[in-house]
Nucleic acid binder design. Structure first.
Lengths: 190, 190
DNA sequence: GTCAAGGTTCACAGATCAGTATACCTATGA
DNA sequence: TCATAGGTATACTGATCTGTGAACCTTGAC
């Protein structure tokens, strides 16, 4: 996978256009011609930079993954209380959701790309594993009992809020509250 | 929407083939030619019966919705304890998941069909609202305190387990356990 | 015996799909 | 001065997409 920093100006515009179109309309429904047009480049440049549509899809998810992880990390770091840090991804999700109302791009991508050998498949799956591991680490650092089970519960709450987000049922607030309660209950002395 | 009972034999075979293909490969990625071939019919028959691919997609989701609701209802009815009945959809999901390992067909459909005016859009959204209302009714019947908030939490847990199902992380067992604990905690005297 | 409904066969239209070929332009740096 | 890299412009291939037209077959009901 090509690094984002190594990309040419046209390459960056292509990924940006792909991100907006793929996320809002779906991957299969968006053709490379449209992406080239929206990015102000040509299909030739797109193929020179990325080789295939599949690789561009992978680049789209990798870019998005990078941005999401960096938001989560900075949100975690700005909590000084380690107990509050455990639920920081829920706070990050609230900010993230303001500009992303079509659910989880990785889950959506997995829905469209069932083939495990697709270059984008592993990126989407890894994002969830990363979050699960992060929850485990944060719960352990906060001294929570049963950090593995707690992390799985937090992941489910997080993904459930994200999956139901397009339905606008206010699930994020409810799941954030429950997540906080679970963490507090798992911390021995408080 | 045409009733399933009113469908001709060829129509039923077409919906069955569409269900398998749409769920396993994605909606946009599957063409009507393939569906006609797999169902042992012709494209002409498909269009005579359903009018358009979009309508067939709606029929696919409606059929699936009907089957899922009937499984949930029968699972609810076989619990004699009203407290156990509240988490019956989680039990139904365990059975359902044995043959459906590609996540939630409705969430996946929403990922591919962002247009709210698409005939399938409302069907997918309604399925989630139905489940939320069912949780509310069951929680109320079981005498739970704060049934609305509890129902939202249960929905999030349910959808979270479903969304992370393709990742095979064992989230269903964990979320079922948490759901049971939440219901028990909301029942006054037990 | 006739008529209609369900279904098949097959050809076709028009659009769009991913991906390639070829030629050209322009700036940078050795 | 000249090569190279990044990019543009444009036409093209072959496949696939949704959807239609028209003729024909079969079966059951009246």
């Amino acid at each position: 996978m090509q690094e984002a920093q190594a990309r040419t100006p046209a390459g960056r515009r292509i990924v940006a256009a792909a991100e907006e179109l793929f996320y809002s309309r779906g991957i299969t429904a968006v053709g490379v011609d449209l992406i080239a047009e929206r990015s102000g480049t040509t299909k030739r440049t797109l193929y020179n930079q990325f080789g295939s549509k599949d690789q561009l899809v992978a680049a789209y998810l990798a870019e998005r993954d990078q941005r999401w992880r960096s938001l989560v990390r900075s949100t975690v770091e700005t909590r000084d209380d380690p107990v509050e840090a455990v639920t920081a991804p829920f706070v990050a999700l609230r900010d993230w959701s303001e500009a992303n109302t079509r659910g989880c791009a990785f889950i959506n991508a997995l829905a469209e790309l069932p083939d495990p050998s697709h270059p984008a498949h592993r990126i989407a799956a890894d994002e969830k594993l990363w979050l699960l591991n992060l929850f485990t680490e944060l719960a352990t650092a906060a001294g929570c009992s049963g950090p593995a089970a707690l992390a799985t519960q937090l992941l489910v709450l997080h993904e459930g809020a994200l999956a139901t987000q397009p339905l606008a049922l206010g699930t994020l607030a409810e799941s954030t509250g429950l997540a906080r309660a679970l963490v507090r209950a798992a911390v021995p002395s408080r």
